[in-house]
C-alpha cells in the first residue's frame, strides 16, 4: 500500500516537473509568437529599417547574422576537425590530452561577454581589423571551437573499432584509415554538431555587440561592419524604439534557430539509413 503511494507521488512529481518544463517553453514561444506574428511579412523580412523608429524591415540584420555565422563556420570547421582527429586518433592518451580537453571545456564555459571583450581588444583593436564581420566571426569561433571540437571528437570515437580493423587489415596506413574510413563514417554526426552550433552563433549577442559594430549595413566584404539581428533586437527593445519590430525580430530569430535544429535532425536521420 505505502509502496503504491510512494510510487504515485513520485510519478506525480515527474509529471509536474515535465509539465512545468513544457509550460515554460510554451509560454516563451507563445508570447513571442503572439506579439511578433503581426509584424511578419515579406516587407518586414526583405526591406531596410527606416527613420528614427526603425520602421520597415530588418533585411540587413538578417544578412549580417547569416554572414557572420557562415564565416565563423568556415573558420571553425577545418580547425575543429583537425584538432579532434589529433586528439582522438593521434595524441597519446594521457595527462596532456586530458589537460587539452579540460582547457577546451573551460573555454566553452567562458561567459560570452568576456569573449566579446577579448575579441574587441584582440581583433578589433590590436589586430586592427576594426568592427567587422571578420572580427565577429573570429571572436565567435573562440566561443564555438571547443564545442564543435568536442562533438567532432565524440563523432570520431563513435566509429566502431572493428571498422578501423577492417581498414588496417587491408594494409591501410593510419592516415589512410582516418581520412578514407573514419572521417567519412563520422561525417553525418560531425555535420550535425556543426549545424547545432550554428544555432548558437545565430543567437549570440554579447560577442558580436563588441566586434561587429552596430551600424545598419549590408555587409559584402568580411571587413564590413554590420548589425546582427540579436543586437538589433536588443537596441529596439532596450531603448523602447519599436517594440513590435523587436518582437518580430525575436520571432524570426527563433524560426531561424529552430530551422537549424530541424535541419540537423533531418540530416542525421537521413544519413543513418545508409
Amino acid at each position: 500500500m505505502s509502496k503504491r503511494i510512494t510510487n504515485a507521488i513520485a510519478l506525480g512529481m515527474l509529471w509536474i516537473a515535465a509539465l512545468i518544463t513544457v509550460a515554460v517553453l510554451g509560454t516563451v514561444i507563445g508570447y513571442v509568437v503572439i506579439n511578433g506574428i503581426g509584424e511578419l511579412s515579406p516587407r518586414f523580412i526583405f526591406t531596410w529599417p527606416e527613420g528614427v523608429a526603425a520602421e520597415g524591415g530588418v533585411w540587413p540584420t538578417i544578412v549580417s547574422t547569416l554572414y557572420v555565422t557562415a564565416l565563423a563556420m568556415v573558420i571553425i570547421t577545418p580547425i575543429a576537425i583537425l584538432a579532434a582527429v589529433y586528439l582522438a586518433e593521434y595524441a597519446v592518451q594521457g595527462r596532456l590530452v586530458g589537460t587539452i580537453r579540460f582547457a577546451a571545456d573551460s573555454l566553452a564555459s567562458v561567459p560570452s561577454i568576456v569573449m566579446g571583450l577579448f575579441g574587441l581588444a584582440l581583433f578589433v583593436e590590436a589586430a586592427g581589423i576594426g568592427f567587422s564581420m571578420l572580427s565577429a566571426a573570429l571572436a565567435l569561433s573562440f566561443l564555438m571551437l571547443p564545442i564543435v571540437m568536442r562533438t567532432t571528437e565524440e563523432a570520431i570515437r563513435a566509429v566502431p573499432k572493428y571498422i578501423r580493423w577492417g581498414s588496417y587489415g587491408l594494409g591501410a596506413t593510419k592516415w589512410q584509415t582516418v581520412s578514407r574510413i573514419v572521417l567519412p563514417a563520422a561525417m553525418p554526426r560531425i555535420i550535425t554538431g556543426i549545424i547545432l552550433s550554428t544555432g548558437r552563433a545565430v543567437g549570440e549577442t554579447a560577442v558580436v555587440i563588441y566586434t561587429m559594430g552596430q551600424a545598419i549595413n549590408l555587409p559584402v566584404s568580411p571587413l564590413d561592419s554590420g548589425r546582427p539581428m540579436t543586437v538589433h533586437l536588443y537596441l529596439l527593445a532596450m531603448e523602447g524604439i519599436n517594440l513590435p519590430a523587436a518582437y518580430g525580430t525575436a520571432l524570426l530569430l527563433m524560426i531561424l534557430i529552430l530551422g537549424f535544429n530541424l535541419g540537423a535532425r533531418f540530416f542525421l536521420r537521413r544519413n543513418r539509413k545508409v
Partner: peptide
C-alpha cells in the same frame, strides 16, 4: 606491407559504410 600479404576476416562482418563496389575497390585503390 605485411597486412597486404596477409588478409584478415573478423567474427563480426565489418563492411565500410560505403557502396559494395567501393568496399571491394578499397584495397586496390590504396
Amino acid at each position: 606491407d605485411l597486412r597486404r600479404r596477409i588478409g584478415m576476416i573478423f567474427q563480426q562482418p565489418n563492411p565500410f559504410p560505403m557502396s559494395i563496389y567501393d568496399n571491394v575497390a578499397f584495397g586496390p585503390r590504396l
